[in-house]
Nucleic acid binder design. Structure first.
Length: 585
DNA sequence: GCGAACATGAATACATTA
DNA sequence: TAATGTATTCATGTTCGC
């Protein structure tokens, strides 16, 4: 039940926005930590008394308003409390609109007509110019120049004549650049509006914060060629825990997702973290400036796998699929325990690659160790451990180190046993396919947020499917796959996915393509109309030309295979545009 | 022709030391 | 702070045997 507003003064609005930003209030800000006052304010915001009481109880009577709002939003994410109406109000408040006008718009258009409410609010703010963001954003901080160029101003004027607000128009020009057509700018704004609507219940509270400093960095049009000269350095986190890992709440963090990046559809892109300098800057720039989430799978299983993920998924309320894998070699591969030398300090494996060590190497290790009946000399130990690390060898007998077999790799990567076995696949191909795949537990952790959002199933566009790491993750999360359109060049991998589909009695449709280039724009539109659109576009494009192990053609994103990343971008863009068109009609 | 086995460094990040 | 050392890396191309 939404109550009448009693805090619609500009001061109060500023206070709320400050709190949404999680920034410490300035000394001049009006901050009232009295729980009574806060209670009244939250009631005014439309939250139910029960929910507020519960949140205050959880956070303590001295908690700040933002903490309480976060908690309440968490309840709504969990579908346990909070009505959709309160979320609607909070959502538009977070966008910077006055509550009084929000309530009025809801009364006029009905709560379910989010788009009409948004339009009414935008129109209202256009007339009165009272959107908080417009007052807060310092447009002069663009480092291109201090004055708006006439062309941008013309675009803004035209957009405003089309009915968009000054804020929307300015933002669109800033984000897309000056050389973009009015039609494209209008599309950009519509995309953002639809995304906000769609994201109402799907993003965490932090992601819904107004980005007051959105223009305080250089905005490079996405279509610009990226060169090493203009790429901003993107450092890898240490420890590589992304936006959070299971059971380590100290690492749980929040992020600001650019408005243009918000779904629908959700997208999830993966590639190796240790790519040549500048590659991730380019990837991020082409995927709507979304900050990559770099995660090492050593926090999810007994093997390292440093990967970057660019996605627009919510990051609150992630959960791990069970049973959680063992995190040490000795626990994951208990048979090795008996033979593990005390002088080998490894407890986790390095990244699982596509090839394994030669028999010559394991033979050399055995000979080197058998040459010394007792403990080997330090130099020998060092050399053996170095090779064991290099080739991920484990101890399978006395003085006997061996590469992992395919079954063990399947287990470490989170695949069902024998996932890649059978169907005439050779061991070499099996190892290659596994070495190129996702670590399922890691990906599932990120995708887990989709489970409450798609209880009736999900339509997936799976690019560079490989052996189906994404599909296995969704299956293990028990998210029904209504449709999977899979694109995979390798016949062997396609067979593996098809086997998985049949073996697990999937009820949905599996539609297969060989080549991403076969998936023309027209074909994508046709497919989307056929299956009802895609909810998730997932894939990791080839890393051949990025990987450190490649001594021959590590040529970066322009390489023969790795340049297929741009196909991912093309396809994603078509899916997004078509999604918007389908929602309009 | 196919699969298995094998030899083939360098780019990069991070830690240590002077 | 710069130099040096250490660790890591979803690989490719060639040869050989069946």
């Amino acid at each position: 039940m939404v109550q009448d507003s009693s805090w619609n003064s500009d001061d109060d609005l500023d206070f709320e926005i400050d709190n949404f930003q999680s920034s410490p209030p300035s000394s001049s800000s009006h901050v009232d930590t009295s729980s009574d006052h806060m209670f009244a304010k939250l009631v005014d915001m439309g939250y139910s008394v029960d929910v507020i009481a519960r949140a205050i109880e959880e956070n303590g009577p001295n908690a700040e308003t933002c903490a309480i709002i976060d908690t309440i939003s968490t309840y709504s994410m969990n579908c346990e409390a909070s009505s959709s109406k309160t979320n609607t109000v909070a959502h538009f408040i977070a966008m910077g609109f006055h509550e009084e006008k929000i309530i009025k718009a809801i009364h006029e258009h009905g709560e379910e007509n989010m788009e009409q409410i948004a339009n009414a609010l935008l129109l209202s703010s256009e007339v009165s110019g009272d959107m908080a963001e417009e007052e807060d954003i310092d447009w002069s901080e663009s480092d291109d120049d201090d004055e708006k160029d006439p062309e941008s101003f013309d675009s803004c004027t035209q957009l405003r004549h089309m009915g968009f607000s000054a804020l929307e128009a300015s933002l669109a020009v800033q984000r897309c650049g000056d050389d973009v057509s009015i039609a494209d700018l209008a599309d950009f704004i519509c995309a953002a509006q639809i995304a906000r609507e769609f994201d109402e219940f799907h993003t965490d509270p932090e992601e819904q914060k107004p980005r007051q400093n959105i223009n305080k960095r250089r905005i490079v049009p996405r279509r610009d060629p990226i060169t090493s000269a203009n790429a901003q350095p993107l450092s890898l986190p240490n420890p590589m825990v992304g936006f959070g890992i299971p059971n380590e709440s100290v690492f749980i963090t929040h992020r600001s997702l650019p408005a243009i990046a918000r779904g629908p559809p959700y997208f999830y892109y993966e590639n190796i973290a240790n790519a040549p300098v500048g590659v991730w800057e380019t990837i991020s720039r082409h995927l709507y400036d979304v900050t990559p989430e770099f995660v090492d799978s050593k926090f999810f299983c007994a093997a390292a796998r440093k990967r970057g993920y660019v996605h627009n998924l919510p990051i609150s309320n992630r959960f791990q699929i069970q049973p959680a894998p063992k995190l040490t070699i000795q626990e994951a591969l208990p048979a090795t325990r008996r033979w593990w030398p005390k002088w080998d300090p490894r407890t986790q494996l390095n990244c699982i690659l596509t090839v394994h060590a030669s028999a010559q190497l394991t033979k050399w290790i055995r000979s080197a160790l058998e040459a010394h009946p007792g403990e080997p000399p330090e130099a020998t130990k060092r050399k053996v451990i170095e090779q064991c690390r290099r080739w991920n060898l484990v101890w399978v007998g006395k003085n006997k180190a061996a590469p992992l077999d395919a079954d063990e790799i399947e287990s470490l990567l989170g695949f069902p046993r024998n996932h890649t076995r059978g169907g005439g696949i050779s061991m070499t191909q099996r190892l290659k396919s596994l070495g190129n795949s996702f670590q399922v537990d890691t990906v599932a952790y990120h995708l887990s947020v989709l489970k409450p959002l798609f209880p009736d199933g999900i339509n997936v566009l799976s690019l560079f499917t490989g052996i189906g790491g994404g599909e296995v993750a969704l299956h293990r999360l028990q998210i029904p796959m209504r449709t999977v359109v899979s694109v995979e060049i390798s016949e062997v991998n396609r067979n593996i996915l098809r086997d998985f589909w049949e073996q697990t009695n999937q009820r949905g449709r599996l539609i297969e393509f060989e080549d991403v280039q076969e998936l023309t724009n027209e074909k994508i539109v046709e497919l989307m109309k056929r299956v009802g659109g895609f909810d998730l576009v997932i894939g990791g494009s080839p890393c051949n030309n990025l990987a450190g192990g490649n001594r021959v053609s590590r040529s970066g994103l322009e390489g023969e295979q790795s340049s297929l990343f741009f196909e991912y971008c093309r396809i994603l863009e078509v899916v997004r545009e078509t999604t918007m068109e389908m929602r309009r009609s």
